[in-house]
Write a protein that binds this DNA or RNA. Structure first.
Lengths: 191, 191
DNA sequence: GACAAACGATAACATTTGTTATCAAATATT
DNA sequence: AATATTTGATAACAAATGTTATCGTTTGTC
């Protein structure tokens, strides 16, 4: 799982082993909840196989805020970093294989690699990229009609439209399942 | 302008002077454009007095994405950091007084203070807080109806509802000016 | 003070989207 | 294979929101 990233980290083999050994493997079925709403997030997950969605309950309805696929890392970030109760649920969509690391272990590693400017910069960059992603998604909500947002999704995140059940996509787009179904049938008519 | 922050920065008086001298003062009328769409952002602004909005043109209509008030810093961040053409316009709403620093000067300062862990951590924290803010705003768009979003705004960002013209607020909420007007009159009826 | 521009409220109507219910197809479970 | 569950499509109706137009008020400019 981690060997594919080995050459990206300027670490000794010893440190590399020490760090990667902090991760534990987990095989879990579909619809497994990895973090409950209200729980303090103490684990960061990396997906080897499967799909994870992050959602919260809004007046009895699921609202999906993010999807994650293979090789992405997942956590309720604000809860994880500040030890606050998580507002969101983390749950698998498909049967999945994930690796997790405890906050304690990760903190130790981050503290150690702080002295390596290269890794530090990459970490900061990662945060910025995440910010930019949110901005784009947010802008699309005020800018585009649902139909356009759906077309954007097909274009920019084909994994979502191909692998994720449609009612999760609807809540991700901020519309009802019925309306997404209508959008799809209208798009088919035009073709 | 900067003396109020003096005690927050563990710097020598010499360094402090050197850094603050990089900023230039600017007095400008309302509706002054500080950054054009498509231009590469080379300045970071700090507001001494006034209001700035960030917006972009969408099919001939203004869409406001952010408001900034006194003591906040403003830039088209992705453009500023990566030297890309800015997708947004930065413009004053009121007659304003702003200070600006060039990207060159700021880069030099950031490079120097990198060695001060305290400042470095605060910088990283700032990035995270910005990310969390975007998340909240974004979640509110899929979670709440416009009426609730407007109530949230009154509650959480009273400066906006009190000082910003209503048609800018409408585009910020992602609704038409007419609809915001309706929302306001309905809220008044209920009282 | 006169005029123009900006701002905001409101009405009438069109369009978009949500809600509820029903049915069909796909998938999982036994 | 039989059954239950999940998923998705569709129709009918209700509610939310946009569009266009008009009017009055405020604000800025000369």
């Amino acid at each position: 799982m981690f060997n594919q990233f080995r050459n990206k980290f300027p670490l000794t083999d010893e440190k590399w082993m020490e760090y990667t050994n902090c991760f534990k493997r987990l095989e879990i079925p579909a619809k497994t909840i990895l973090l409950e709403e209200g729980e303090v997030s103490k684990r960061l997950f990396i997906i080897e196989k499967g799909i994870i969605r992050v959602w919260f309950n809004n007046n009895g309805k699921d609202l999906t805020t993010q999807f994650f696929f293979e090789n992405q890392s997942v956590a309720s970030i604000e809860s994880f970093m500040k030890k606050l109760p998580s507002p969101v649920v983390i749950e698998t969509i498909e049967p999945s294989v994930v690796w997790w690391i405890s906050k304690n272990d990760l903190d130790k590693i981050l503290e150690e690699i702080k002295e390596i400017p290269e890794l530090r910069d990459r970490f900061i960059n990662m945060l910025f990229e995440r910010t930019f992603d949110y901005m784009k998604h947010f802008v699309s909500f005020i800018k585009d009609f649902p139909t356009q947002r759906y077309l954007n999704l097909i274009e920019e995140r084909p994994q979502i439209t191909q692998r994720v059940p449609q009612h999760y996509i609807a809540s991700y787009l901020g519309i009802s399942t019925v309306h997404l179904s209508r959008i799809k049938s209208k798009l088919l008519q035009k073709k």
